[in-house]
């Protein structure tokens, strides 16, 4: 998933479909960003994106199935952090998610998480039919 060459540290964790376990990984990633002196703004953005990405993988990807796991890989350098989240669900087409900001969809629950990740991160990419999400934040980017 992530090639270690571009980064100083690389971590790989596989968790069950349990949001509390997802939170634990999230805290480890945030602590690592603090160690590398990422700005508060970077941390705010990444925490938000991690929450959305991990929850999507557990709830919408694995559908909370306890027999399925989520693999989270993250790598950091002083310049950037990259996180790859892989679920074992059937996948989805990100283009099929309705625009949550369209007036008729404003009250619908879906699509807002992806939209927030796009707005707050420097890179968000889905691959393998939507089962692998890659997000990236550059140090000090808006």
């Amino acid at each position: 998933m992530i090639s270690a060459e571009d980064f100083d540290e690389l971590f790989d964790e596989t968790i069950p479909s349990d949001t509390a376990k997802g939170q634990e990984v999230q805290e480890r990633i945030i602590a690592l960003m603090e160690k590398y002196n990422f700005t508060e703004r970077d941390i705010f953005s990444t925490r938000l994106a991690l929450e959305e990405g991990i929850i999507n993988a557990i709830k919408h990807g694995n559908r909370m199935d306890q027999n399925k796991v989520v693999r989270i890989q993250w790598a950091i350098s002083p310049e950037k952090i990259r996180v790859v989240i892989k679920d074992e669900g059937p996948g989805f087409d990100p283009c099929d998610v309705p625009d949550p900001t369209a007036l008729e969809n404003l009250e619908r629950p879906c699509g807002r998480g992806i939209m927030l990740m796009k707005a707050f991160m420097d890179l968000i990419e889905y691959s393998e039919r939507g089962t692998i999400l890659t997000i990236e934040k550059n140090q000090g980017s808006e």
Partner: peptide
């Protein structure tokens, strides 16, 4: 901090 689930 606030997630999209909270917005829902």
């Amino acid at each position: 901090y606030l997630s999209s689930a909270a917005l829902g």
